[in-house]
Simulated scan of single mutants.
Amino acid sequence: MIDATSSLNAVGIGGTGAARAIERIAPTAGAGAVSGLDFGAVLTDVASKGVSAIANAEAASIKGIRGEASIQQVVEAVLEAERTLQTAIAVRDKVVQAYQEISRMAI
């Protein structure tokens, strides 16, 4: 299985890469900024939870094939993984859309 957090780090959006990118865009936090939240850490956490949900579905499927899990458990795990994947795709699409809007802005 692919390690999503290392994939995010490889393209520079995971871990502190995203935080550095945000810091370049907005180097100083204003009075309205929320303290204690690191965008890169949140992104990494969401990615790792998504990978965990998919791994759980994979494990439940294998247990179902072996007869160690009920069909209901397998279906619930697979549906949770599907929801996770659909959410990740929706977030990706919104990020791409935002990037395209920013790239069209006049400088």
Rank of each mutant, 00 (worst) to 15 (best):
G12Q: 00
Y99I: 11
E82S: 13
S61V: 04
L37P: 05
P27H: 01
T87F: 13
R83T: 12
G12L: 02
A18T: 03
Y99D: 15
D93N: 13
A90D: 14
S61P: 04
T84W: 07
R24P: 02
V75T: 11
D38P: 01
I25K: 07
A77T: 02
V75D: 11
A29G: 10
V95S: 05
A21P: 05
N56H: 10
A21H: 08
I25A: 14
A47L: 05
K94Q: 12
G14Q: 02
L43R: 04
L85G: 10
T44P: 03
V78E: 11
M105P: 04
E68K: 03
A33H: 03
G30M: 00
A18Q: 04
A90M: 08
R104K: 11
T87K: 08
E23D: 15
Q72M: 12
Q73W: 05
D93Y: 09
R20H: 11
A88M: 09
A69K: 00
Q73R: 12
A57M: 02
N56F: 08
P27M: 03
T16Y: 04
L43M: 13
A53L: 12
I89K: 12
S70F: 04
G36F: 01
I54F: 08
T87Q: 12
A26T: 09
Q86A: 14
E23A: 15
T44E: 10
Q73V: 08
V95A: 10
I13H: 03
I65H: 09
L43T: 09
A88C: 14
A69Q: 00
E68I: 04
M105L: 15
A26R: 09
S35P: 03
A33I: 00
V95T: 06
R20I: 07
I62H: 09
A18W: 02
D38A: 09
V51K: 12
A47V: 01
R66L: 12
Q100I: 06
T28Q: 12
A53P: 02
G15C: 01
S70Y: 02
A106K: 15
T44S: 10
G64V: 00
R83V: 07
V51A: 15
E82H: 11
S70V: 02
T28Y: 10
E76F: 09
